[in-house]
């Protein structure tokens, strides 16, 4: 039973991180039609900036993390200006390729800045554990769950109750009509890139204390989160969060009991099955709506 509890807790924490990453994908996709393949490297960059602000500059955890998130937002705007704005009239595939180029540039920058040596980011809640039903659950995983839930609720509020959210929803529903109605796509795109990069940075900050930060840190998370986003139908926020939870729990629980060597491939297997049986995703409750 203790193994089941530990695996379930790990699965939920993984699902929370995947939800943050997948929502970063979704926000950008809905606002601009772009799938950003630099997202994995933005997760890595966020973690490295966190190491820099907290470990190198010596800032206390909360100001260090806030500074990291702010910097990530600015980096998101920079990517929009360089890799999206000049290509806005071009086919979406051109912009997708530009995001791949952005990924290479980010990776190169980190490589020159930090090198190949892994770095550590201490957990703000320490290395302790909470004992539940005989299983030990690390405080950091509980923190991931709480912060992830707060971020998702905050995001829902932004989309439901702010002008930015209404504009993104309008663009997602009908881009041409939204522009005719005066939605300022330039500013919405900049804000969406910033928000997406901030979510990537937050995911990086939350996951880094579990192990260490190195150049490939964000790549695996990006791929798994992409599977979660597709599973959720790339439509509603709730669908993507549910997709992320399904992926996280399947990977941990099924991987814990059946063929554990192949646990890393389970998200891809789930993805293939869903694409074959239900191409619109499991949770296509409100297509093109947030």
């Amino acid at each position: 039973m203790d193994k089941f509890i530990a695996l379930t807790a790990g699965g939920i924490a993984l699902g929370a991180v995947l939800a943050l990453v997948a929502l970063g994908f979704l926000v950008l996709y809905k606002a601009t039609g772009v799938i950003n393949f630099a997202h994995g490297d933005l997760i890595t960059l966020g973690a490295y900036i966190g190491v820099w602000t907290v470990a190198d500059l010596g800032l206390p955890t909360i100001p260090g993390y806030v500074l990291t998130i702010v910097l990530m937002g600015l980096i998101g705007v920079l990517i929009e200006r360089v890799a999206h704005a000049p290509l806005r009239k071009r086919p979406a595939m051109v912009v997708v390729i530009a995001t791949l180029a952005a990924a290479i540039v980010i990776r190169g920058f980190i490589s020159v800045w930090q090198g190949a040596t892994p770095r550590a980011l201490d957990s703000p809640v320490g290395g302790g554990v909470l004992r539940v039903g005989g299983a030990n659950i690390a405080y950091q995983r509980i923190l991931i769950l709480i912060v992830g839930a707060i971020a998702v609720i905050a995001l829902l509020m932004v989309f439901q109750r702010t002008a930015f959210g209404r504009q993104v929803r309008a663009l997602a529903a009908d881009p041409e009509t939204a522009q005719l109605m005066g939605v300022r796509t330039k500013y919405v795109a900049m804000a969406a890139f910033a928000l997406s990069a901030m979510l990537a940075g937050l995911a990086g900050l939350l996951v880094a204390p579990l192990g260490a930060v190195e150049l490939n840190f964000g790549f695996g998370l990006m791929i798994t989160a992409f599977a979660a986003a597709v599973l959720g139908g790339f439509g509603s926020l709730g669908g993507v969060v549910a997709g992320a939870m399904v992926i996280g729990i399947v990977q941990q629980l099924v991987g814990g009991y059946v063929l554990p060597e192949y646990a890393a491939t389970y998200p891809a297997i789930v993805l293939f099955i869903v694409i074959a049986l239900r191409p619109q995703g499991l949770f296509d409750l409100a297509r093109s709506r947030l």
Binding site: K3, A6, L7, G10, A13, L14, V17, V207, L210, G211, N216, F217, F219, G220, L221, Q252, G255, G256, P260, E261, A263, A264
Partner: peptide, 15 residues
């Protein structure tokens, strides 16, 4: 136990 090099949770392997 052989796991993915990018794994961030090895609960199942550790247990």
């Amino acid at each position: 136990r052989n796991y993915d090099p990018t794994a961030t949770d090895l609960t199942q392997d550790v247990l």
